[in-house]
Amino acid sequence: MNYKTVQTPARKVIALVAHDNLKSSLIDWCTKHEASLSQHRICATGTSGQLIEKHCSLNIEKLISGPLGGDQQIGARISEGDVDMLVFFWDPFEPMPHDPDVKALLRIAAVWNIPVACNFASADMMMASSLLDQPFDKRVPDYERYIQQRSQ
């Protein structure tokens, strides 16, 4: 795979997702970081987004619920370059009926080189990063070059 460098903007698009047993943890985390999060665009899967808006004064773009395709919606946005960070509080103790969607979302985040936090501690560290509020360069797959090579 060939790569290119793109610039992540200062105002990030942050996607938020939480499994049922961890939705309260995500709400607590959002409350803790509400001031910082309000400086960025936030999208979330349906139920998580509704609960966050209910408990915080954040403006959330709510997608559909994860098991109904919300995880895949976020994955599509990542591959289109429309999500800069992912906070995904997934439950390692509870098997999920949509586990393949969860794995696909994490795979796409890795492919497109976006920061991913899977728990409170890693999400706190992401929010404390000096790169949170400034542009930074990252490597992503060079899709145009990939298509050109495959179509020859």
Results as ranks from 00 to 15, higher is better:
residue 90 W to I: 10
residue 21 N to I: 12
residue 122 S to H: 02
residue 109 A to P: 04
residue 34 E to R: 15
residue 63 L to M: 09
residue 11 R to C: 08
residue 28 D to A: 15
residue 104 A to Y: 10
residue 88 F to M: 07
residue 143 Y to P: 04
residue 8 T to Y: 05
residue 64 I to P: 03
residue 38 S to D: 10
residue 90 W to Q: 10
residue 121 A to Q: 13
residue 126 M to E: 06
residue 116 V to P: 01
residue 41 R to F: 10
residue 79 S to R: 08
residue 70 G to D: 03
residue 123 A to H: 00
residue 79 S to N: 07
residue 54 K to V: 04
residue 151 S to Q: 10
residue 26 L to C: 02
residue 93 F to I: 15
residue 91 D to N: 10
residue 116 V to R: 02
residue 13 V to W: 01
residue 122 S to L: 09
residue 133 D to R: 08
residue 31 T to S: 15
residue 68 L to M: 15
residue 131 L to T: 11
residue 20 D to R: 11
residue 145 R to L: 12
residue 84 D to C: 07
residue 94 E to I: 12
residue 141 P to A: 11
residue 54 K to P: 06
residue 136 F to N: 14
residue 18 A to Y: 00
residue 22 L to E: 01
residue 138 K to I: 14
residue 91 D to Y: 01
residue 13 V to H: 06
residue 151 S to A: 13
residue 4 K to V: 11
residue 17 V to K: 03
residue 15 A to D: 01
residue 40 H to T: 04
residue 114 I to P: 03
residue 150 R to L: 11
residue 19 H to T: 13
residue 115 P to Y: 00
residue 77 R to E: 10
residue 61 E to R: 11
residue 73 Q to A: 04
residue 106 L to N: 01
residue 144 E to S: 13
residue 104 A to I: 07
residue 120 F to H: 05
residue 3 Y to I: 11
residue 17 V to L: 05
residue 67 P to T: 06
residue 61 E to Q: 13
residue 87 V to K: 02
residue 140 V to S: 01
residue 64 I to H: 04
residue 75 G to P: 00
residue 130 S to F: 11
residue 141 P to F: 08
residue 18 A to N: 00
residue 152 Q to H: 12
residue 7 Q to P: 08
residue 39 Q to N: 14
residue 57 S to D: 14
residue 42 I to Y: 01
residue 115 P to R: 11
residue 84 D to Q: 05
residue 102 V to T: 11
residue 102 V to F: 09
residue 12 K to M: 05
residue 101 D to G: 05
residue 119 N to M: 03
residue 64 I to A: 05
residue 39 Q to P: 09
residue 71 D to V: 12
residue 106 L to T: 04
residue 7 Q to N: 14
residue 149 Q to Y: 05
residue 117 A to F: 03
residue 116 V to M: 05
residue 47 T to Y: 02
residue 111 V to G: 10
residue 76 A to H: 08
residue 152 Q to M: 13
residue 52 I to Q: 03
residue 18 A to T: 00
residue 16 L to C: 07
residue 46 G to A: 00
residue 41 R to T: 10
residue 84 D to V: 04
residue 36 S to I: 10
residue 112 W to D: 03
residue 25 S to N: 12
residue 12 K to S: 01
residue 4 K to R: 10
residue 60 I to R: 05
residue 1 M to Q: 15
residue 77 R to G: 06
residue 107 R to Y: 02
residue 115 P to N: 12
residue 58 L to R: 05
residue 52 I to H: 00
residue 150 R to K: 12
residue 75 G to E: 00
residue 42 I to M: 07
residue 86 L to Y: 06
residue 81 G to R: 01
residue 71 D to S: 07
residue 149 Q to D: 10
residue 83 V to S: 01
residue 94 E to R: 13
residue 80 E to P: 08
residue 51 L to N: 13
residue 81 G to L: 01
residue 132 L to K: 02
residue 69 G to A: 08
residue 29 W to Q: 00
residue 145 R to H: 14
residue 57 S to C: 12
residue 132 L to N: 01
residue 74 I to N: 07
residue 4 K to D: 07
